[in-house]
Simulated scan of single mutants.
Amino acid sequence: METYRIEQNYDQSICLIPISQIEVLNSRDRNEKVFAEVLESIRTVGLKKPITVTKNVDSNYQYQLICGEGRIKAFLQLGESEIPARIIDVSKEEALIMSLVENIARRQHRAMEFLSCIERLSDLGYDKNEISKKIDLAPVYVQGIITLLKNGEERLLYAVEQKKYH
């Protein structure tokens, strides 16, 4: 097993945990070019930032992933079975929200992926004002997205994303 160096700027301790014990609740599609760059960076330089997980009490998995699915996939592709992780203590709902907000915060995400994250927050019971604070968008914009998604207008949203307006 190859060892991957970790650059640390954390006060929390970092543990090596089995990848097979991590539940990914908020999986997302990856840009293949970006993923290849992450993979090569880990292979040559090492892991710069550990993944973030929380303990999982109501599942067959010991941990729930908050942040770092791409790093997990890279480690698996490199033949590793364990990965360095920062373990934080949050509820399952807080972990899911943190994961959704992390995905929303990414600079280059697909619009539909972004919109579905907003819909998931709404489905969890958050109103437009709470969601807008978490993702730094106007409540009226968030409400518009929720309304379109709840009314089955994914085709309209997809057309806007693809710039197909006819």
Rank of each mutant, 00 (worst) to 15 (best):
T147R: 03
K150C: 00
Y165N: 03
M112W: 02
T147Y: 09
K133R: 08
G46Q: 12
Y61N: 04
Q77R: 15
E82F: 10
G125V: 01
S91H: 14
C67R: 10
S91P: 07
Q8C: 11
R106G: 12
K134W: 01
I22R: 14
A111N: 11
L76F: 11
E161D: 13
T52M: 12
I6W: 13
G70F: 09
I42A: 07
S27V: 08
T54I: 02
T147K: 01
D136H: 01
D58T: 12
E23V: 13
R106T: 05
E40S: 11
I135G: 02
I97F: 05
R120D: 03
R28K: 15
S116V: 10
G46Y: 04
V34L: 13
R106M: 11
N129W: 05
V34P: 05
I135T: 09
V24Y: 10
E40G: 06
A74R: 13
I72G: 07
E94R: 01
E82M: 05
T44F: 06
R30V: 13
E102T: 01
Y4M: 06
N103Y: 08
L100S: 04
R106K: 13
V38F: 14
V38G: 06
A105I: 05
R107S: 10
L47K: 11
K33C: 05
I6A: 13
E161L: 02
T44Y: 11
K92Y: 13
S27W: 08
Q21D: 04
L16I: 06
Y165P: 03
V57L: 14
C15T: 15
D58H: 12
R155L: 06
G46D: 04
A95D: 08
C117Y: 03
L121M: 09
K48T: 03
I83E: 08
K150Y: 00
C117V: 09
F114T: 02
E80L: 12
A74V: 07
G46V: 04
P18Q: 13
E82W: 01
I131E: 00
G68W: 09
R86Y: 12
R86P: 02
Q108W: 07
E37S: 03
N31M: 08
P50A: 02
T52W: 11
G125K: 10
F75C: 02
C15H: 15
Y141E: 05
P50L: 05
A95E: 14
